[in-house]
Write a protein that binds this DNA or RNA. Structure first.
Lengths: 143, 143
DNA sequence: CCATGATGTAATATCAATTTTTACAACCAG
DNA sequence: CTGGTTGTAAAAATTGATATTACATCATGG
């Protein structure tokens, strides 16, 4: 199962605010047009990013801005903000292994550390990429 | 969004075959009892593992066995066998970013290599864990 | 050779999460 | 106070996972 598109949408949103924020007001309708998703989806993601302290959104007059320097916002910050999985676990464990079975009784003890090991590797990589990297990469394409 | 429980189920299945396969026939009903999921789910996963060359399942008389030495089956082999995502991509990209928008037009070029970078880190970690590790860990609990 | 107990698979139902869409109250600025 | 915007709720549509029923197919022991 794939990680939801809210993650790539959020990065797209940041790229738009960074690119267009100086010259115009970046509203949810503007972002909806650029991403081709419904404005309500944009507003919900902006809400998650706002509660995580990554963007500021002004009610009434409208428009969003980025709350921190780009090199201080990592992919992991964004991932954690928009990908709200229970307990923050990447892997879904089958719920009720049999306690009558020696394997079923111990599979969690055995597997949990290994699953964390994998998830940690992914999070480490997510933490190593910042929005400043994206700005740099994008700048090369925009010229 | 989480990775489906088919992955942890598959590992549970391997652990059962390895633990009980010598002393008894390991059927889909047996595995369904140990994992507490429906036997058809087990049979479907066994089918995916069989097509990936990781297990052998005998029709008619019944029972499953492991097709390779445990240290030659990695978590990545299992993950790829049971987690059938289109294109094998971990991240779901929003489908139709606007080609009218400079950001929308380039977001894929910018983001795709970064997403692969993250996915590769995860796959590298999955590749580093084998079923032999799980047998070792489980043995400590079974004694 | 057939009765039994398995597997393989299709079909359907249920459930959960995502995504879309409509609607509207709250809000701010000119 | 009017126009454009955000925040949010609610409902529908969509998708994928999981459960369940059903049955054809298969191997084997009696």
């Amino acid at each position: 199962m794939q990680i939801s598109s809210r993650f790539t949408l959020a990065i797209h949103i940041f790229a738009c605010i960074d690119t267009f924020g100086d010259s115009q007001k970046v509203t949810s309708d503007f972002l909806a047009a650029s991403t081709n998703v419904n404005p309500v989806i944009i507003r919900n993601i902006l809400g998650q990013l706002r509660r995580a302290g990554l963007v500021e959104v002004t009610r009434g007059s409208g428009g969003a801005s980025i709350a921190k320097p780009l090199d201080q916002i990592t992919f992991l910050d964004i991932y954690n903000a928009v990908e709200s999985v229970e307990d923050g676990r990447l892997f879904h464990f089958h719920e009720n292994p049999s306690l009558q079975c020696p394997v079923g009784r111990n599979i969690h003890h055995v597997l949990d550390p290994r699953l964390w090991q994998v998830q940690s590797a992914m999070e480490r990589e997510l933490r190593s990429i910042t929005l400043a990297d994206i700005r740099n990469d994008l700048k090369a394409y925009l010229e």
